[in-house]
Amino acid sequence: MSVWKNLGEHEVYSNPWLRINLADVELPDGRHLDHYLMRLRPVALATVVNERDEVLLLWRHRFITDTWGWELAAGVVEAGESLEAAAAREMLEETGWRPGPLQHLLTVEPSNGLTDALHHVYWSTSAEYVGHPEDDFESERREWVSLARVLELVAKGEVRSANAVAALLLLHHMRLG
């Protein structure tokens, strides 16, 4: 079994959002290499699929990649907050919809060769519109999008984030087969 071993790491930089560490890694053949990695807080995401098989999405711009795409409401889990509570909070803040009972859909590692980030995706079959989103600056618009369009949107590159692609493809499969 070929296993890379982390023999230890030290912090190079940190802030409230992330830590950048340098690890001493032993390769299976005994060689060593320095490997930079990011340690990140967990992220929770949430969406709703309604009775018409429409999913609640956000259309937003990401300045880092200068791209637009459909995403799920998402954010960092605060200290002492459960994953499910964080997912519900983010959905309400970013969409104005309070989800009904949430179910865990999946957990993904979007870039496990560089970070230890875990993205925990939740979904519900009901939601209550509470009002205009508190964090409306996070997206240009929020829309109910037909799950039947998911494959087309992913293929066209309109869903760009790995967590949203994985979640939407799984929801499409679960609801539409």
Rank of each mutant, 00 (worst) to 15 (best):
W97M: 10
E81V: 11
A117M: 14
W123M: 01
V76Y: 05
W123R: 03
S126C: 05
L102C: 12
L114T: 13
H119I: 11
G100A: 09
A117L: 15
A117F: 00
L105P: 00
P99H: 08
G113K: 07
L83D: 12
S111A: 13
G80Q: 02
G80D: 08
D116Y: 10
M91T: 02
A87E: 09
V76A: 13
V108A: 03
E81A: 10
A79M: 10
A88D: 09
H104W: 15
A73D: 06
A85E: 14
E94P: 00
Q103F: 11
A88Y: 04
V121N: 07
G80N: 04
H104K: 13
T125G: 12
H120K: 01
S126M: 06
L114R: 14
G100Y: 07
D116M: 07
T115V: 07
H104F: 13
L102V: 04
S124L: 07
G96C: 06
A86K: 07
L92H: 04
T95N: 01
L83P: 01
N112K: 12
L118F: 07
G96L: 03
E81P: 10
R89G: 00
L102N: 08
A73L: 06
H104G: 11
A86L: 07
T95C: 04
G96R: 06
E93Y: 10
E90C: 02
L105D: 00
V108E: 05
L92Y: 01
A79V: 15
E90F: 09
